[in-house]
Design a protein around this nucleic acid. Structure first.
Lengths: 197, 197
DNA sequence: GCCCGGACTTAACCTAGATCATTTCCCAAG
DNA sequence: CTTGGGAAATGATCTAGGTTAAGTCCGGGC
C-alpha cells in the first residue's frame, strides 16, 4: 500500500474505522496521479468527472471574473479534497479552474465510483457528511469575514489559518484569496499598521 | 400527521424513500414549535442544541460585526433547514443570531437525536450529505459573487435567487444580505442603472 | 553572461461605496 | 386623531481600496 493510500486511510480513520476488506475495496477505485507546478487538473467550461484527494504538494481552485481577475476559492495541500463541486454535482460545464501550485500527487475517484461506494460503505458517507459540515462552516466564516473585516484583518486571518502556506505562496495568490489587488496588498504590507493604543 | 410533517417527508422524499416505520421513527424525534415575528431562536453566545426545519414563515441567521452592522448569512423560508452550524458542531458558544422575520412554524430536532438517527437510518445521512453538498456550492458562489461583482450585480442576483423574498423583505435586510449599507442600496435603487448599449 | 518575463514596489490619481446628518414617510399604539 | 419610532430617501463629504503606469528585482533558459 502506497504512502498516498496511507494518508487517505489515516484521514478517514479520524472519523471511523473500516475493515480490511472495506479498505481494499475503497483503494481499488482510486487512481494515483501527479501534476507538475502550473499544470491543470480542470479547466473552465469542462465537466468535472472526479474528485481528488491531495497527497503531496498543493492544488488550488479559482474562478476568473469578467475583468480577468483570479479569485481563489480553495487551497488544497496534502490531506485535502478538491474539485469543482458545482460541475461535479450537476455534471455540467464548470466555472472553476484547478491547477497545481507545486509539484503534487493525488488520488482520484470518479463520481460514479464514489456514488457506488456510498451504497457499499455507509461509513464513507458519514465521513463525507462530516467533512461537508466543516466545509459549510468554513465558507460561512469566510463570507462573514469578507462582509465585515478590512483587508488587513483578512490578511491577518489568513496568516493564522494557513501559517505554512503564507511562506510558500507568492503574494499575488494571497491577494487573490483574501480579495484585494496585488498592488494594494503590497502597499499594505510595506506600510506600518496604523499605530494603536 | 401534521402538514409540517408532510412537508419534511416530501422534501426528504426527493432524494430517497423511507418505510412507514422509518418515517414514524423520524417524526417521533421532531418537536413542533413556532415563533412570532422578531422572536429569537438563538442568541449570540448561546450553544446551539438543535437544528430546525422551517415549515411556514421565514427565519434568518446573521452575525453582528464589531461596528454593530448585521450581516445576514441565510434566509430560511418553508422547506429549509437552519442552525448556527458552527455552534452546533462544536457545542460551543456561537456568534450567530437566528430570529423570525415573519410568524413562523418549524420542526426541531436535537443534535444528539439526529446523530442517533444517522445510525438508524442511513438514508437520512444520504439526504443531509446531498443537502450539504448543495450548501457548499451555494456558499462558494456567494463568496465568488462578493469578490467579483458590484453591489448592483449582487442585488440583481438576489432578485433572481429569491424572487418571493424580495417582495416581503424590508430593504435594509436585503442590504444586510448582499453586503452594502441600507443608504447605499436605497440610493442605488432610485438612480437609473448607467445606460448601456 | 544576457535576456526575458513574472513578482513585487511605489506613486498619483480615481471611484464605489461608507458615513453622517437631515428629512420624509408610514403605520401601529395609545 | 396624534404621536413616535422604524424604514426609506437624499445630500454632502470621506476613504478603503482600485486603477494605471512606471520602475526594480530577481531567477531561469539559452
Amino acid at each position: 500500500m502506497s504512502t498516498a493510500h496511507n494518508l487517505l486511510l489515516e484521514h478517514i480513520g479520524r472519523h471511523l474505522s473500516f475493515s480490511a476488506a472495506e479498505e481494499k475495496r475503497l483503494l481499488s477505485l482510486l487512481q494515483e496521479r501527479s501534476l507538475k507546478p502550473k499544470q491543470f487538473l480542470h479547466h473552465e467550461g469542462e465537466v468535472q468527472k472526479s474528485q481528488v484527494f491531495v497527497t503531496s504538494g498543493c492544488l488550488r481552485s479559482y474562478a476568473i471574473d469578467h475583468n480577468g481577475f483570479e479569485h481563489i476559492l480553495q487551497f488544497a495541500p496534502a490531506g485535502w479534497w478538491i474539485a469543482d463541486m458545482q460541475s461535479l454535482l450537476d455534471q455540467a460545464p464548470g466555472k472553476l479552474i484547478i491547477d497545481a501550485i507545486q509539484a503534487s500527487t493525488f488520488l482520484q475517484i470518479s463520481r460514479s465510483d464514489l456514488d457506488r461506494l456510498y451504497d457499499e460503505l455507509p461509513g464513507l458517507e458519514r465521513h463525507f457528511r462530516l467533512l461537508l459540515e466543516r466545509s459549510v462552516v468554513t465558507y460561512q466564516n469566510r463570507l462573514l469575514d469578507n462582509l465585515s473585516l478590512s483587508a488587513r484583518e483578512r490578511y491577518e486571518n489568513f496568516c493564522k489559518a494557513y501559517p505554512s502556506l503564507i511562506r510558500e505562496l507568492p503574494q499575488k495568490q494571497v491577494a487573490a484569496y483574501i480579495g484585494v489587488t496585488p498592488e494594494f496588498l503590497s502597499r499594505m504590507l510595506n506600510q506600518p499598521a496604523t499605530a494603536k493604543g
